[in-house]
Each structure stands twice: as structure tokens, then as C-alpha cells.
């Protein structure tokens, strides 16, 4: 399914020797992998394998004790969330992290905040630059609303939306930032088959139309094997497999991790 017109480029994100522990609990130990431009990279693994921690390390929510992160040629110990956002990393969360008290439109508008430069005073008067920025960014947000087919809920407070739509709004908010690297934490969890198909289509469309590099965590193996270019497999905080879906599928360690081993 993947491939098509897009061309997978150079490595844009490289993680080397990442170790993360919370007190005595080792969440990640010595993990290295890379992500190439325009590819869809999946991270899979059983529950508690450290997949979400991995994403949290990439965009700076967690600071690893060891290892380095190289993004766009810049190597550093850890990311800071604000800095990651400035560099073009956007993400969605496993448990939807939308702003419940705001409308869908406002939620997506928050994704554009880094492009708004007007001072508070200008915003208070709502004149000149503040007004221009609001309108220009609104136009961009409407593009994304059209793209994800959520026009009908534009004005609805997100707290009132069903689960599947919330996931889509969260994707919209991440896309509004026009990221170069998009991190999706279980975008299809808890969805029915139809919703999953929609979501897969959106993920592939984002990847093809905007050329966005995507790192994705997903439990549905069918989805992962279908849409991703390369897969990293984690188990108990260690990397046990890495490669194309076919390679990973044939990897004995991966099969053991998922099916269990006879002792």
C-alpha cells in the first residue's frame, strides 16, 4: 500500500542509546533507531513495552538519562516540549488530550499558536496584526477541517463529541502546526473497523499530500503491517526488532514476544 509517489529521503531523526528510568523502573534501555524523511515508521510492542515513553522522549515530555537525539542534524541530550514544537514536531496522545472547554475550531487554532506573533496589547484591541493573523490562520485551519472532513462540528465544544471524532480533531490540531514530524500515539485505539479505515486513509493522505514524516504507535497489526514503511518492535523497554513489515513479521523474537514462549 505504501510507496506510491512519495520518495523516502534522508534520516531526519536519529535516536541513539536512549535509556529512561523512573526510579528503579527501567522504561527504556539502550534503544537506537532512526526515522527517514517522508516515511511512516511504526512502533509496536506488547503493553508496557515503552512505546509511549519513546514518543515522550522524542518530543521532550520525558528526559532520558542516557542517549542522544539527533533531529534535523542537531544532536542533543533531550528535547524540551516547546523547542520540539518550534522545530516542527507535533503529536497526538493515547488518551485524547484535547482542550475540553473549547470548540473544535478553537482547539485546531491552538495548533497554529507558534505562527501568531501579535502582542497581548494588539490582541486586546484586535486590530492590525492581531486581526490579520487570526484571519490568515483561520483560513489555514479551515483547509485542515476540510481535509479531515469535520466541517459539521466546527462550532461544537469538543467535550460533546463522540470518541472517534475526538481522535480526528486531535489529529487536526496536530496537523494545524504543519509539522515535519508527526507523532501519533495509538490513533486507532478503541475505534470500530469503519473508523479505523477512515483514520488509515487520513494518515496515508497526510503522509502523501503534505509529505509529513509519521511515527506511529499502534496495536492493530493489520493496520501497522499495511501502512508502515518500517517497524520498530519494543518489549520490556528493549528493541527486539527493526525493519520492514515483512522482516519484522518473520523475526522469531517478535513472534515470541507476542505469542509467548514455552518455558
Amino acid at each position: 500500500m505504501s510507496g506510491g509517489g512519495r520518495r523516502i529521503g534522508e534520516v531526519i531523526l536519529r535516536l541513539e542509546g536512549i535509556s529512561l528510568s523512573f526510579g528503579g523502573v527501567k522504561a527504556l534501555s539502550d534503544i537506537s533507531f532512526d526515522v527517514r524523511e517522508h516515511e511512516i515508521r511504526a512502533i509496536i510492542g506488547p503493553n508496557g513495552a515503552g512505546k509511549s515513553s519513546m514518543l515522550n522522549v522524542i518530543n521532550g515530555v520525558y528526559r532520558p538519562q542516557q542517549g542522544t537525539i539527533t533531529f534535523h542534524g542537531e544532536t542533543r541530550r533531550d528535547m524540551v516540549p516547546h523547542q520540539a514544537a518550534m522545530q516542527g514536531i507535533a503529536r497526538t496522545f493515547q488518551n485524547i488530550a484535547l482542550f475540553k472547554g473549547m470548540s473544535v475550531l478553537d482547539n485546531i487554532m491552538t495548533g497554529r499558536n507558534l505562527r501568531m506573533k501579535a502582542t497581548i496589547l494588539e490582541q486586546a484591541i484586535h486590530f492590525g496584526r492581531a486581526r490579520r493573523e487570526e484571519l490568515a490562520n483561520r483560513a489555514k485551519v479551515e483547509e485542515i477541517i476540510d481535509f479531515l472532513e469535520i466541517q459539521h462540528i466546527r462550532r461544537t465544544p469538543v467535550g460533546r463529541l463522540p470518541y472517534g471524532l475526538m481522535k480526528r480533531v486531535e489529529l487536526a490540531r496536530a496537523l494545524a502546526a504543519e509539522p515535519t514530524l508527526l507523532l501519533l500515539d495509538e490513533p486507532m485505539a478503541g475505534m470500530n473497523v469503519e473508523e479505523k479505515q477512515d483514520m488509515c486513509r487520513f494518515v496515508l493522505d497526510v503522509n502523501e499530500q503534505y509529505g509529513t514524516t509519521i511515527v506511529l504507535i499502534e496495536h492493530d497489526m493489520g493496520v501497522v503491517m499495511d501502512i508502515s514503511d518500517r517497524v520498530v518492535v519494543l518489549d520490556y523497554g528493549r528493541k527486539i526488532g527493526d525493519g520492514t513489515p515483512d522482516v519484522v513479521r518473520a523475526n522469531q523474537a517478535v513472534i515470541d514476544a507476542y505469542l509467548g514462549v514455552a518455558h
Binding site: V61, P81, A97, F99, N113
Partner: peptide, 30 residues
């Protein structure tokens, strides 16, 4: 002025911090 602020970027920043501060930070609000 308050009405204008809450419907602008700064108002969205405030509400984002109120509703979900981790997501607000990840999205780029300091």
C-alpha cells in the same frame, strides 16, 4: 479588551493551559 483577548491566541493559550497543560506545552505554548 478582555473579550478580544479571550478570542485571540492568548485566550486560547489560557484555556489550553486550563484544560490540559501537558498538551498545551507540547503544542508550543510556554
Amino acid at each position: 479588551a478582555a473579550k478580544n483577548m479571550v478570542r485571540s491566541s492568548i485566550g486560547r493559550a489560557w484555556m489550553a493551559v486550563r484544560d490540559m497543560d501537558v498538551a498545551a506545552e507540547v503544542i508550543g505554548f510556554p
